[in-house]
Simulated scan of single mutants.
Amino acid sequence: MSDSSTPVPTAELLAEGLHDWVLAERWLHARFATPDYVSGLALVVAIGDAAESAEHHPDVTLRHGHVEVHLRSHDVGDLTRRDLRLAHRITELAAEHGAEARPASVRLQSLALDASDLAAVGRFWSAAYTGSPDHVDGNDVIDPDTHELLLWLQPTGPHAEPRQRFHVDLWVAPEAAPDRIAAILDAGGTLVSDAEAPSFTVLADPEGNKLCICTCLDRRP
């Protein structure tokens, strides 16, 4: 099996030295602050040229003040060596264009729903999000065009309907997690559990609504 079709284990990803990038939900994400809009546009063009040369195409967003890049091998549905090579090249291009990596500014939100009948609940939410009940992969409802996670179904036993079954997973860079958690606690939040930290830390707002601050550490290979 070639390196373009073999998923890279998490330990290898973390050892790769991609300090400008954040690993979350088996994607690589980066934000590069740009001096101005024109510089950002030039960086996007350079990334596009590199992507064409590599025959591997990331998702790129140009905003005033920064460029965001999201990398994954869509045909594999995971991260491969192609992504690592292109991530290194994009880091080089960003430096050449005077853009500064801001990994601590990367934040990715995913929505989680407790469900005991994953198949039935998944089909419902797949139909709601995509117009078809067929875009469920295991516990995930997936956008068929972008392959992005739309909703994660958290297995649970059957139970009476509680006040809250949804919760938000907020993904951040591992080095940003402690400060983010401290800010939440300073703002009136409560630590519910850090038993699974640094993988995720559960917090609650003043009315008990749950939030998980998630990182890529201590997760599956």
Rank of each mutant, 00 (worst) to 15 (best):
S2C: 12
D3L: 15
S5G: 12
T6Q: 14
P7W: 00
E16S: 14
E16Y: 06
L18G: 02
E25S: 13
E25H: 09
R31N: 05
P35A: 05
V38K: 13
L41M: 15
L43A: 06
L43S: 04
V44T: 12
I47Q: 06
G48F: 10
A50V: 10
E52L: 14
A54T: 03
A54Y: 06
P58D: 07
V60A: 06
V60M: 09
T61I: 09
G65S: 12
H66S: 12
V67Y: 01
E68M: 11
V69D: 01
H70A: 15
L71C: 07
L71Q: 07
G77Q: 09
D78N: 11
R81C: 10
R82P: 04
T91Y: 02
E96L: 13
G98F: 03
V106C: 10
A112P: 01
A112Y: 11
L118C: 01
R123G: 02
T130A: 04
P133S: 04
V136G: 01
T146L: 06
E148I: 01
L149C: 01
L151D: 00
W152Q: 12
G157V: 12
P158H: 05
A160D: 15
E161F: 03
H167Q: 11
W171Q: 06
W171T: 05
W171L: 06
A176S: 09
P178N: 04
P178D: 02
D179G: 13
I181F: 02
D186M: 08
G189E: 02
E196C: 07
T201K: 00
P206A: 11
E207D: 15
T215W: 00
C216K: 02
D218W: 08
R219C: 00
R220N: 13
